[in-house]
């Protein structure tokens, strides 16, 4: 029954939440950034001058991974793993942290990929009309709104949990 004890440990559950945030948001961003990179590489073979513009587009869907890490850090700060002594957490508190990590984990994963698709299509805009980069960026940024909202949701929840 040692295993069950570990599984119901508050610290473990909170850490699991932090891990989810990093894993899924990071996975999504990695896939998305890779996707844009592939398309961008195709354009840069023909037009090496467009490197910096396409790099900008490639960077956009990378933020979800950062948001995931950020949420994880806030959780780690709260439960005292970083910069303090680990707090005693009840199972319920642990589950609360786990739940708080879900918005950025799930929305981060999906929105990164969706944003990657928009940014990859934006590379097409840059290919034909390099002066319209701002519009390509705006299209991709529209998607990011939802990652930001999810981040905000996660962070407010994490801040709000009473220890």
């Amino acid at each position: 029954m040692k295993l069950l004890e570990v599984l119901l440990n508050g610290q473990f559950l909170a850490l699991l939440g932090a891990a989810f945030a990093v894993i899924f948001a990071g996975l999504g961003s990695a896939r998305a950034v890779g996707m844009v990179g592939e398309v961008a590489a195709g354009l840069v073979t023909e037009e090496p001058d467009r490197f910096s513009q396409t790099l900008l587009l490639q960077a956009l869907p990378g933020t979800q991974g950062i948001y995931g890490l950020l949420t994880a850090f806030v959780i780690l700060f709260r439960i005292g793993i970083i910069g303090g002594t680990p707090a005693e957490l009840s199972t319920v508190q642990g589950v609360l942290f786990l739940v708080a990590s879900l918005p950025i984990a799930i929305v981060g994963y999906k929105s990164a990929i969706a944003q990657g698709k928009a940014a990859a299509a934006g590379v097409g805009i840059v290919a034909k009309r390099p002066q319209e980069l701002a519009k390509a960026i705006t299209f991709a940024a529209m998607v990011e709104t939802y990652a930001i909202l999810a981040l905000l949701g996660s962070i407010l929840m994490v801040f709000g949990i009473k220890i």
């Binding site: 948001y67 850090f73 910069g83 930001i148 909202l149 981040l151 905000l152 962070i155």
Partner: peptide, 23 residues
């Protein structure tokens, strides 16, 4: 109006990442 919550989110992001770097 809710869309402006990104002002907070992005501001927090900078602050948290910065303190992580320092840690």
């Amino acid at each position: 109006v809710l869309s402006y919550s990104r002002l907070l989110a992005l501001g927090l992001a900078t602050g948290v990442i910065a303190s992580v770097i320092n840690t």
